[in-house]
Simulated assay, not measured.
Amino acid sequence: MHKDRTRPQGRRDPRRPGAPGSRAATARPTAAPTPRPATTAAAAVAAPTALRHPHRPTPHEQFAERLLAVLSGRRPVHWMLGHTIGEAYEQLVQLAPRTPLRTRGTLPVVRTCGGFHPRPGVVEAFASIAAGEQVRAMAFRLEQGRDLRWRCAAVELGTAPTSPACTPA
């Protein structure tokens, strides 16, 4: 039997690409293969998500979630000790017990979050917080330290707007 050096040892199939007499050796023009449709619903759903890149949260988005956890009562204020500088921790101590974000029903969530970089290493951020039909504003400032960690330097919560009909005359 003829030994071919490109064929793995023990393989006797002459139909390999490029072998004499194989279809690839007698190249005929053929149409490009058509892609097969997904056979299962799970495969159809998984295909588009594999192409997407996961969203990596920015530092101000991470801090908005972290601050909301403290201001809504889900986490204690001391959870922010290593993540604050200056008077931000004292502001949280004052805000946390009396914040309108401590609801008894719907848990508040961050709806939107954005930030402005006035200079390198500083982010002035804002977030809208929704709890049911109630929406509040939160603003905070992040500063990047020499160790490249972001820390909260200031926090403010928007108060509920008062309508003219509700104000005492």
Rank of each mutant, 00 (worst) to 15 (best):
residue 41 A to M: 08
residue 53 H to K: 11
residue 86 G to S: 01
residue 25 A to M: 13
residue 78 H to F: 09
residue 71 L to T: 07
residue 153 A to Y: 03
residue 149 R to Q: 13
residue 51 L to E: 07
residue 85 I to Q: 15
residue 83 H to F: 11
residue 70 V to T: 04
residue 88 A to E: 02
residue 30 T to E: 14
residue 90 E to D: 05
residue 148 L to H: 03
residue 119 R to Q: 15
residue 142 L to S: 03
residue 19 A to G: 02
residue 125 A to D: 04
residue 27 A to W: 04
residue 151 R to V: 03
residue 3 K to T: 11
residue 38 A to Q: 05
residue 28 R to A: 12
residue 105 G to L: 15
residue 65 E to D: 10
residue 2 H to G: 03
residue 55 H to A: 13
residue 144 Q to D: 09
residue 85 I to H: 07
residue 10 G to W: 02
residue 23 R to D: 13
residue 91 Q to Y: 05
residue 117 H to E: 12
residue 124 E to L: 15
residue 2 H to A: 12
residue 128 S to H: 14
residue 61 E to D: 06
residue 101 L to D: 06
residue 8 P to D: 10
residue 156 E to A: 15
residue 149 R to N: 14
residue 16 R to Q: 05
residue 49 T to I: 14
residue 90 E to G: 12
residue 17 P to E: 05
residue 66 R to V: 00
residue 37 P to K: 10
residue 138 M to K: 08
residue 146 R to L: 15
residue 21 G to N: 11
residue 24 A to I: 06
residue 55 H to G: 02
residue 31 A to L: 15
residue 49 T to C: 04
residue 163 S to E: 10
residue 11 R to Q: 14
residue 148 L to C: 07
residue 98 R to V: 04
residue 149 R to F: 12
residue 26 T to Y: 04
residue 145 G to V: 07
residue 45 V to A: 12
residue 114 G to Q: 08
residue 29 P to D: 10
residue 147 D to L: 04
residue 75 R to Q: 12
residue 20 P to C: 09
residue 114 G to P: 02
residue 16 R to Y: 03
residue 122 V to A: 12
residue 121 G to L: 11
residue 95 L to W: 00
residue 121 G to D: 06
residue 81 L to S: 04
residue 19 A to N: 08
residue 137 A to D: 09
residue 51 L to W: 08
residue 137 A to I: 08
residue 123 V to R: 00
residue 83 H to P: 01
residue 89 Y to S: 01
residue 96 A to T: 06
residue 40 T to R: 00
residue 18 G to I: 05
residue 11 R to L: 14
residue 137 A to F: 12
residue 92 L to K: 01
residue 104 R to H: 15
residue 147 D to P: 03
residue 59 P to V: 08
residue 159 T to C: 13
residue 111 R to E: 09
residue 126 F to T: 14
residue 127 A to R: 03
residue 39 T to H: 05
residue 156 E to C: 11
residue 104 R to E: 12
residue 40 T to M: 03
residue 48 P to S: 10
residue 44 A to V: 11
residue 36 R to P: 02
residue 84 T to V: 05
residue 112 T to H: 07
residue 54 P to I: 00
residue 130 A to S: 07
residue 97 P to I: 07
residue 166 C to F: 09
residue 162 T to A: 15
residue 47 A to F: 04
residue 39 T to P: 05
residue 74 R to H: 13
residue 62 Q to T: 06
residue 61 E to S: 05
residue 98 R to H: 14
residue 24 A to K: 09
residue 83 H to G: 00
residue 141 R to M: 02
residue 34 T to M: 12
residue 34 T to Y: 06
residue 122 V to S: 09
residue 27 A to G: 01
residue 118 P to Y: 10
